[in-house]
């Protein structure tokens, strides 16, 4: 379990907090909120990219989980082939795993990009680049996957396909997913739990467990729509409050 205990982050002025959150293992949690509410800051704090100004981030079993981070843009290195991009985390951490190439090919296959290993990023579509980015994030055996608006630049069809594939990835690999998005429908569709942030400095204004009686065509149900309406209402109030 990932625990945020009274976390505050200040730059020149306060941007986040205090935040108290518990993210259970193997859960799928989305964070939504107006621009500047500190959603991405939460991910950067969780990943250790930035340090909290006060408070403590801890883990239930005191062991920092292996993390993968997927940025808003795919952050692939354009001079490296797809397979070399996926292998990058292993190179940087000097991890000696057996058959790294086989493992990266396996992840490439899992994200549906068989045969693309020798392509360069500029030969891929936006959706394919994001899939490579997810494969790279998972290559080290991440148990906590942090995603910062990964599908925001994609078209609707590609986005929906990637959302379904991400759900599949989460279920099959027993990982914890912390997902930042601007889209309420995306958050409700994907998550078990949605956290709504207030405008700056961001605090948690609502923590909602998503009710889901059916898994198939969940986004077509009234249950889905009512939860989207409810969260959109809160988000609108927060936006107006700003």
């Amino acid at each position: 379990m990932l625990i945020f205990n009274n976390i505050v982050k200040n730059y020149e002025e306060p941007v986040l907090g205090p935040i108290n959150l518990k993210i259970k293992n193997n859960s799928f949690v989305s964070i939504i909120g107006p621009s500047g509410s500190g959603k991405s800051t939460i991910l950067r704090l969780a990943s250790g990219l930035i340090k909290e100004s006060s408070g403590l981030i801890s883990y239930e079993d005191c062991v920092k989980p292996k993390m993968g981070f997927v940025f808003q843009d795919s952050t692939l290195l354009p001079w490296r082939t797809v397979i070399d991009n996926i292998l990058l985390p292993l190179e940087l951490t000097n991890k000696n795993i057996s058959k790294p190439k086989d493992k990266s090919l396996m992840w490439l296959s899992r994200v549906g990009l068989d045969g693309k290993e020798n392509s360069f990023p500029n030969e891929l579509s936006g959706g394919q680049k994001m899939r490579v980015s997810i494969a790279r994030a998972m290559i080290q055996g991440a148990s906590l996957l942090l995603l910062d608006e990964p599908f925001s630049a994609l078209d609707e069809v590609t986005r929906r396909k990637l959302e379904d594939d991400l759900l599949e990835l989460w279920k099959v690999n027993n990982i914890t997913v912390l997902f930042v998005t601007h889209s309420v429908t995306e958050a409700v569709y994907l998550s078990e739990r949605v956290i709504v942030m207030s405008s700056s400095p961001g605090t948690v204004v609502e923590d909602v467990v998503i009710k889901r009686k059916v898994n198939n065509n969940f986004d077509q149900t009234e249950e889905f729509m009512s939860q989207v309406r409810y969260l959109s209402g809160i988000l609108r109030q927060e936006g107006e409050g700003k």
Binding site: T75, E91, L92
Partner: peptide
């Protein structure tokens, strides 16, 4: 160099040398 790429390298604890040569 894109800020996100720098953050990616930070995430995996890249050394200065790795950052220079690989990024």
């Amino acid at each position: 160099v894109n800020k996100n790429l720098h953050e990616l390298f930070s995430l995996y604890g890249a050394s200065r040398y790795q950052r220079l040569v690989k990024l």
